[in-house]
Write a protein that binds this DNA or RNA. Structure first.
Lengths: 188, 188
DNA sequence: GCGGAAAGCGACCGGTCGTGCTATGTATTG
DNA sequence: CAATACATAGCACGACCGGTCGCTTTCCGC
């Protein structure tokens, strides 16, 4: 519960800007009481990352991977992301986009973990493209990593712009672009 | 000169995380001496934004807009962005991507200015698409704002990933995607 | 050569940060 | 019932933050 609040707060104030005092206040603890659970701020950040990743796994990845064909899984990942962003779970937009933007020039265990999880997200996307190609649903000319890059690009910019303007138009733009992209990649 | 250093530093430490003391140290001034030039930290941030925007105008926008046909201008904007990102002017990646990610949940004059400049950047892109359509270079089915969104998405993700991994592959991915996109939009 | 404005400096303020150390309650266990 | 483990709170610390103040230096118009 503490970590869920931490993840939510981190999208607004940043993972580093999230102060232990404010988080403790939000969770109804004293500063030192909360601090005792984690040995350091970095441990708190790492635990917050895991909590956020669990949300993504539960809300996006697992439901999407339960679909039958790879194209549906791909659509599930994208739609799950856009739905999560459009909801109010993370008031400051995608947790990992915020955190990565903040830590991309701050080497250390936090950035390492964020990098691993971003790679895993990209791998999830590209694997579905590979599978779609293997099943003959996508053209052979479609490069899985390039396709993962493109789809992720639409999702990321939608997140940025929606966080900024809270206008669902930007989410729909990503939906339209991804639809067009998948249609162009399809064999039929 | 101070503001150029500020813009460079801000991409690494963040526009808010950039402390007056560290900037003064970097620029060879005393803290109070530097502070006297700006009435507040916010004024410093706003001045830094203007300095960074001038770099973008000089290095990307103006050269690109000197091209003859709109498609070349579009390519110029994209290539100018990727070249600037790939250079070492902004060690922490695109200044505006960093700053916007940091301030997107922090209302105030800084966010207002960032929003205006982002709109202007998007307008630059979409206007070239409109012009290309008007000159018969792009299909009538191409939506200028949607196209600007898509191209900007490729550029933004390339920036994120290049800042993270310093691997030129990500810049090339954006180049490839934009090339494919422009080819698909062309009438020929 | 001189006077005043401007620029730059160091010291300092109140506040917040992360982080230790210590005490107090509160269960659990023998 | 006593003793031990654990969760939480209180408090103080050093570091750093943005910001202020008064002093010194520098420079320019006369």
């Amino acid at each position: 519960m503490i970590l869920d609040a931490a993840a939510r707060l981190a999208t607004v104030e940043g993972l580093e800007g999230l102060s232990i005092a404010r988080l403790a206040d939000k969770a109804g603890f004293s500063k030192s009481g909360l601090f005792a659970h984690f040995g350091s701020k970095e441990e708190l950040q790492l635990a917050t990352i895991e909590a956020a990743w669990e949300v993504y796994g539960r809300e996006i990845i697992e439901p999407a991977l339960r679909e039958n064909d790879p194209v549906a899984r791909l659509r599930g990942l994208a739609e799950g992301f856009l739905t999560l962003i459009g909801g109010d779970v993370f008031p400051g937009g995608c947790f990992f986009a915020s955190a990565t933007a903040e830590f991309d020039t701050r080497p250390g265990p936090v950035l390492d973990r964020l990098t691993v999880l971003d790679d895993e997200w990209m791998r999830n996307l590209s694997e579905q493209v590979s599978a779609a190609r293997a099943e003959g649903l996508f053209r052979e000319t479609v490069d899985p990593e390039q396709a993962a890059f493109d789809i992720n690009a639409f999702l990321h910019l939608a997140n940025e712009r929606y966080t900024l303007h809270h206008d669902a138009t930007d989410l729909d733009r990503a939906r339209r672009s991804i639809n067009a992209y998948l249609s162009a990649a399809a064999t039929t």
